[in-house]
Design a binder for these strands. Structure first.
Lengths: 190, 190
DNA sequence: TTTATAAATGAATAAAAATTCATTTAACTT
DNA sequence: AAGTTAAATGAATTTTTATTCATTTATAAA
């Protein structure tokens, strides 16, 4: 009996991300995904019921992976600014190094595949970040404004930098990180 | 002789924007566009050779409109911060009030329809903004870092706010504008 | 009015993409 | 080594979407 190859799912995911980055969700066909993943078209349908299912599974995978990365190396006990920097750099580095995921997620939010419910679920993963920001406000280190705007600011900015770096073939050097974190910190600090 | 109705083109554009915001470029069919614009499918092809042509025309239209808006009410003679605020608010207000365009442009950048050349042309429209920022650096009012990052920051942030406001059904009140401009200004000021 | 001209229509066709399935292949069991 | 099972294949089919075109309708000029 031939065993189902879990690794193949990753090949399919990878292929999908590559193609969506290149051509958008609009321009990505199942045939193309299969070809890119070096499998037959039919094989795709062994692993995923249909295109919608593939997109939704990959969406959840990306959300999960991205959430896992945010709090890497974060120490509750460290000073607020240190913790904030760690998290912001985690977000930025991840968005740059997995840029295809960044674009895929963006495309998903305006696709017929992802509904409001899925969107809402995805949002929940940012809860720990919101808590960190509440702490910063408590300690009077950052502006006392609706956390909503603070989150928008740090995530949105990281997103934009990731795009710019990729499109303009910039490198994510330590200098680049420092410059941008400085802007980010000055923006939110009290 | 029946005259070609230029206004119909706007109806088609409007319909396309509405549908792309809802379903993405992926989920937007010519049939659906025609129906939304309340015309027959065939009529669409009188005005646009094919789907690609429709998308590219609309892309150029959006870019043009957005460029026209940026410098509204801007006075060269005003102090730098005043000018900067005017422009930033113009960008933000436009992105919020024409959110369908914001999304359409975003989708275009990852579609098979828009090529690198078109992208580069679009970028040129930000030139006056770059010049303003150079002036700010000269006057030592803002951070002396690559203009590239400053533009990323102000445009990217406006983009993100527009998304957040729309998705979370927030209103663009004067308070909201002030809060966010404060963050933006603190971020770039020297 | 009548005629000429171009726009508008939408069903028909072509093209592209999604999905299926009969057949083959690979890996495990006895 | 033979038998069994499930994965893999890719051509064939179905479904969806883009595009065409013969016909109708509206407008302007004669």
């Amino acid at each position: 009996m031939k065993l189902r190859d879990e690794n193949k799912i990753n090949r399919i995911y990878k292929a999908t991300l590559t193609l969506v980055k290149q051509n958008g969700l609009a321009g990505t066909t199942m045939q193309a995904v299969a070809k890119e993943a070096k499998i037959a078209t039919g094989t795709l349908y062994i692993y995923f019921e249909n295109k919608e299912s593939l997109v939704i599974s990959l969406f959840n995978e990306c959300i999960k992976e991205s959430a896992a990365v945010v709090f890497k190396d974060y120490e509750m006990s460290a000073p607020f600014k240190v913790g904030f920097r760690t998290i912001w750099l985690n977000v930025l580095k991840h968005k740059v190094s997995h840029f295809d995921q960044t674009i895929f997620l963006e495309q998903c939010f305006h696709s017929p595949f992802i509904d409001d419910n899925t969107r809402a679920e995805a949002k929940k993963l940012l809860l720990p970040l919101r808590e960190l920001l509440e702490r910063g406000k408590m300690e009077e280190l950052i502006k006392d404004i609706d956390t909503f705007w603070l989150v928008s600011f740090m995530i949105g900015y990281a997103n934009e930098i990731a795009k710019r770096i990729t499109y303009h073939k910039k490198k994510l050097t330590m200098e680049t990180l420092d410059i941008n974190f400085q802007i980010c910190w000055d923006g939110i600090k009290a």
